[in-house]
Design a protein around this nucleic acid. Sequence first.
DNA 1: TTGAAAGCGCTAACAG
DNA 2: CTGTTAGCGCTTTCAA
Lengths: 338, 338
Amino acid sequence: MANNITIVELAAALGLSKSTVSRAFRDSEDINPKTREKILQKANELGFSPNLYASNLRGNKSHTIAIIIPEFGNKFFSQAIKGIEWVARNNGYHVLIYVTDHSAEKEADIIRTLVNGRVDGVIMSGSGEGNNHEYLKLLQNNKVPLVFFDRYYEDVPTACITGNDFESSYQATKHLITNGAKRIAYLAVNKDVSIGKIRMEGYKKALEEAKLPINEQLILDTSNDVHVNYQDIKTLIQIQHPDAIFASVERLAMSTIRVARELHLTIPNDLKLICFSCLDIADMLQPSLSVVKQPAYEMGIQATSQLFDILCGRKPDGIRNLLFLDSELIFQHSSRKV
Amino acid sequence: MANNITIVELAAALGLSKSTVSRAFRDSEDINPKTREKILQKANELGFSPNLYASNLRGNKSHTIAIIIPEFGNKFFSQAIKGIEWVARNNGYHVLIYVTDHSAEKEADIIRTLVNGRVDGVIMSGSGEGNNHEYLKLLQNNKVPLVFFDRYYEDVPTACITGNDFESSYQATKHLITNGAKRIAYLAVNKDVSIGKIRMEGYKKALEEAKLPINEQLILDTSNDVHVNYQDIKTLIQIQHPDAIFASVERLAMSTIRVARELHLTIPNDLKLICFSCLDIADMLQPSLSVVKQPAYEMGIQATSQLFDILCGRKPDGIRNLLFLDSELIFQHSSRKV
DNA sequence: TTGAAAGCGCTAACAG
DNA sequence: CTGTTAGCGCTTTCAA
């Protein structure tokens, strides 16, 4: 709860006016350095600091940004947030965090709480579902710039930092083919989000190029429920007998490993596996896991830098502007020919 | 940037007074439901929402809490934050996040930015270093309650949710002994923080009970630099030849696995390993990793609930109050007798 | 260089 | 149930 002592009391204690005290806390040069010194010292002594809400109300800005992400817990988002927090702090900004659990509805709710001045900008990885992104207009109407990272909506014109997912998916799939795979299953996340679609297109391109059939039975659209996914993956493997799996996100690969274990299938002998993941211990898994590793931290840094570019007027808002950062392909045992 | 349209304009557009409009947005019952409906509808139409900073300035509260943690990226903190965010949102609160990189100085800096009304409460896992926690008095002076989770400072009287670390460490060490270990090394984090000390005490108790010597050479106080730790662990193993290692945090166990690999030591044959970790794929590692698994999500939930208890006056602030949540001991291959 | 005064947009008595 | 009014604590002209 805000400070008890106010600028008026501080001023009184010093025999000055509140305007002078106020100046001491701004970058104002209209003040005698000695006076400022005296004020700052007294403030420190009395434990005074200017009330944030009064300042913001006058100044009309919050020095706060929001991060909105669909899930929390994998290395990708952890790293990205770390980057975001770092840049924000260096710019004297604070960071609010929101998790949607992949619910577009929650996403919309959150957005609605942000347009009353709470934040100066938003960095978001989209939760997908539906394609009505009207609520994002709220941000625009309130001049709150938005920057996407990783998962963006194609119909929303704004800056966006993402991976070179088409190319990586293509390369990853090609790698599986090179290693002898012929029936490669693709585990998709939400096809409504950019990455759901694009990663799949890379996969399809590799198949086409190798003259392998694109079998829709081998493409599994997954949910956000880990148990449902487990069952679906199990069924897919039992019925379709793929010889390789390309998981578009880490958690699907983990479920795959558990299913394989239950079905007594050996990776990579019976089933090859590769996935998108930022796990730093992929090489310690049994078997070591082949991954497409996105530069998560860098993505966070870039997204936030772009947001500040917009906030500082160095770049315009509301312009579609995609920046692709290269992922690293790390081939280990899980995808290798045996 | 805040909304352009104000409560006054909305009132004008409806031919009402601004107090009536204000009431429509509070839980006030002093308003005709029909009027409220009309107001809310018009507000929606005009894209109005009450300016946050004006409300906060009047109401003297921010509906925001802060999380301060030393590091970011391991499952423990991810899960805890998830719990915190969940409870906060259910209470209509927003969550600011701050990472200190284990720097007590940064921690103090952050605290200083929080006492101007920015937050109503703070949830923190201490970064340790030094034992001058004077800066935390700032919070108390400004009536901003603080709740610790996991890593607390013993000299700060406040609520604290942590694991039953003494018991878990004791059990984990005992387990290593039962499985034949005689020279058990302990990898400590910062001994200034509660967990650094307490986890080590559990380790020592188990040794004493088994009449094994407590060898300070086998206790490694680690830094926050992964490379330095790697070297130190390597040196420890090469010179002291421990037959087991108890790592007090996950990342130290990961470094140990890498060192063992470099030195061609097999786990658990040449070296047994157990550690504190919330990793959900500990069983997929090679070898599967024995862990002390703290209820991270639950800890976040409990810490935040307690904070709200204090905020709502259901509990007093500034009282030392430790709550211990039981960890789960999961023994897998890395610590087993061969 | 400092002070006086007018709000920022909203809330909460109080009166009607 | 609705309107009037007096601030919340600060910033920022404008005048001194």
